[in-house]
Design a protein around this nucleic acid. Structure first.
Lengths: 232, 232
DNA sequence: ACTGTCTAAGAGGCTAGTCCAGTGAGCCAG
DNA sequence: CTGGCTCACTGGACTAGCCTCTTAGACAGT
């Protein structure tokens, strides 16, 4: 979702015009007090006002449509979606850096539930994937690394074992934010070993079909991993 | 999220070429076994192969970029995002109708947490909004309606009172699916009154800063509202 | 008066052609 | 070997034009 501020890992992508337009149109909607159901100005008109070609404006409208802000109707125009909340959601996502406690909170909520479900629904195949993730993480730590890859694999395996695609989608939605949290935490000395140990506890509970145990172990794990983060 | 299948309420929007292209490109990615980091064919090439103009293809690429599937880089090409999972997430979202139990599950997870947080963090202002929602719902039911509007207001007020924008965003993410569930449930005779009563219990717990009580009341409420749904 | 049909203006959809601006591999001189 | 240059290739954006769809209003026929 957030692209420009994704650690230094990302190549600095050149700003695209349509992204700017999305911002401007969003601002316009707010300033003009447009309500759901209202129409945006005509494409030709809007393009001229914003000083861009229709083709470029069309890209911005596609983006807004995918984001759920508008609904473009042939012959009529671009009408605001019934839930303008989406617009504010999008805007809210742009400044997620300052809300790490909230991210941890959301992660905790979802993953605790996911762990409980995994304990109930896991197949033997799921278990194999979980054990495999533990092995990977153990090997990484043995080699002196932080075990981030194994960590990621583990949480993915748990998510998969819960067999709930809706919850899985919600996890994917905040996955990026979580990734940042995780990397910093595993950088602490001694932390990878602790993290691995708590992973094992979770895995054992899932293996034993112990739903409450898995939930508790996951909760403890997330609190362990997160407390560093909250100090900032 | 899903546009074409939103009850009869929606005007049938004419199919747009770029939407088709998104499908085709997604299919191509899968069939060509492209992995994260791989490049898509050049725009000019791809446009010709798909039999569309570059301008239209550009719209499809914008859509894919907003969906998080690719990352278009000037001078290099369109590279697949590191998390191809997003592609399957998107695909999964298209068929959410058959997964109502999962939606209820996700809703339950989030709203129970939200209720607990609301009990801890609610301000007097939040409480006013909650009470107001209860009044609206009571009035609607008194007039012989189903109280859907008050119901929606209530859950929005609880979500707001939790003061967690990340969780709030996740709720918004599945809000549409939930809406469908809610409307059908409140159509059952006697159901609106029961629903209102359980809303009152939640509100009382939130008023008393009783976190566990609020969580339990919300859980009971959702189970009440959802069981009809699961029969289908 | 009412109602159905037709038409034209204006909306978005899409294309083709053109030029601009980064990227990166390869060549060549120092 | 290294630095700098060039050039082919990629995406970015614009323009002009034509098509289809929607809708409101004119204009018949009842």
């Amino acid at each position: 979702m957030e692209k420009t501020a994704r650690a230094g890992l990302e190549r600095v992508t050149r700003p695209r015009l349509y992204e700017q337009l999305v911002e401007q149109i969003l601002a316009y909607i707010e300033s003009a007090q447009l309500k759901p159901g209202d129409l945006l100005p005509a494409e030709r008109d809007l393009a001229e006002r914003l000083g861009v070609s229709r083709a470029t404006l069309a890209q911005a409208l596609v983006a807004l449509e995918v984001l759920g802000v508008i609904d473009v109707q042939h012959g009529t125009g671009a009408v605001l979606a019934r839930r303008p909340s989406v617009a504010s959601v999008v805007k809210g996502l742009r400044e997620h850096q300052s809300r790490l406690p909230e991210i941890v909170e959301a992660r905790s909520t979802l993953e605790v539930k996911l762990a409980a479900l995994a304990a109930e629904r896991r197949t033997d195949q799921d278990l194999t994937a979980i054990d495999n993730a533990l092995d990977v993480m153990a090997k990484e730590i043995g080699d002196g690394h932080r075990g981030t890859h194994g960590d990621e694999l583990f949480h993915q395996a748990i998510t998969a074992a819960a067999h709930s695609s809706v919850l899985g989608q919600l996890m994917a939605f905040i996955a990026e934010m979580i990734l940042e949290t995780r990397m910093e935490s595993l950088g602490q000395p001694g932390r990878p070993e602790q993290s691995l140990a708590s992973h094992r506890k979770i895995a054992d509970a899932v293996r034993a079909h112990d739903s409450d145990g898995a939930a508790n172990a996951m909760l403890a794990h997330i609190e362990l991993v997160s407390d560093v983060e909250l100090l900032r």
